[in-house]
Computed example of a mutant assay.
Amino acid sequence: MSSVKPKLYYVYDPMCSWCWGYKPVWHKIKQAVADDVDIIYVLGGLAPDTDEIMPEMMQAQIASYWKKIEKYLGTKFNYEFWTENTPRRATYPACRAILAARYQGAEQVMLDAVQMAYYLEAKNPSDNPVLITLAKQLGLNIAQFEIDFLSSQTQQALLTEVAFARKIGGDSFPSLFIDKAGKIVEIPINYENADTTIGHLKSVI
């Protein structure tokens, strides 16, 4: 029997509203299978960098997704985001912030901070100052964070990670994949029931 645990890849984006809606279910899944698999977070890179203001039609479309998720899952959103910010369709800054936090062992707390800032506090994680403030509030080594966050190496690491996500089939977020002895299998996402996914994972493991 192999002593190497299967890998469970969680492909996500910190500014993906469905990932925010999935959070409670994902938390239960993690707790249930943590001893059986190595859980690896993979950034999917939803939207590259841009300075262009998001068109009003797209703003309305994304806000409608929020309402759909809210109705479907009971997830909370702060719609003041749309009136208090200048939205841009850019999630790569938040992804780079996640990587810079990962280098300090703080990927998941940074993810929590970005999601809460975006969805509950109506702050814009497409803006670098917002992300740097979050890192300060988390008590990260801020000098090192800023160096990593703004570096070309981190941008390249992000592009490499996004390419890996696409290679294994992670085109939508969230996505789950099990890598067992080099064979990668996608696990269907169930947004409402953690037990269904836990049972599926345990049968594959």
Rank of each mutant, 00 (worst) to 15 (best):
T86P: 02
Q31I: 02
S64E: 13
T86M: 12
I147E: 15
L73H: 04
N85K: 05
Q144H: 04
K202H: 11
G45Q: 04
D179P: 08
Q115V: 01
F81A: 05
Q137M: 08
Y12P: 00
T83K: 15
C95S: 15
M1R: 15
K202Q: 15
P48V: 00
Q61W: 02
S17F: 04
K67I: 00
I187V: 15
I39D: 03
L73I: 09
K71T: 09
K23C: 00
D195T: 12
G74C: 07
V42G: 07
M116T: 15
E161Y: 06
Y191H: 14
L111V: 01
Y12V: 05
T197F: 03
N193E: 13
V37F: 14
V25M: 07
M58D: 12
K183G: 01
G21C: 05
K7H: 07
A60W: 00
A113G: 09
D13N: 11
I187S: 11
M1F: 12
A106V: 03
P48L: 04
T160C: 01
N85L: 10
R102I: 00
M15P: 01
Y9W: 08
V162N: 01
A135N: 05
E107L: 11
S172W: 01
P6N: 02
R166N: 13
A32F: 11
E56Y: 02
N78W: 06
K71I: 00
Q59V: 01
E56M: 06
Y191R: 09
W82S: 06
W18M: 03
P87G: 04
G199W: 03
A63T: 03
K202C: 01
K7L: 13
V33N: 09
I62Y: 12
K183H: 14
A157C: 06
W66A: 10
S64I: 01
F149G: 05
K30R: 15
P174A: 09
S203V: 04
S64V: 00
I98F: 03
A181F: 09
A143T: 14
G170H: 05
M110V: 09
I53L: 12
K123G: 05
I98E: 06
Y12H: 13
R166F: 09
C19V: 05
C19S: 11
W26V: 04
D179K: 10
I29G: 06
M110R: 10
P87E: 03
G105I: 11
F173T: 10
Y103T: 04
H27K: 15
V25P: 03
A63L: 08
Y41S: 10
K67H: 12
P129E: 07
I62L: 12
K30E: 14
S3W: 12
R166E: 12
D195H: 04
I198L: 04
T133R: 14
L134Q: 09
I184G: 08
L99C: 06
P55H: 07
V114N: 11
M58L: 15
K167W: 02
T160L: 07
K23G: 00
P6E: 07
G182T: 07
L99D: 06
K180T: 01
D171G: 13
A34P: 02
K123N: 12
M116S: 13
F173Y: 15
I184N: 10
I29H: 12
K5W: 12
H200R: 14
C19F: 02
I178K: 10
V42D: 00
P48F: 02
N124M: 08
E56H: 08
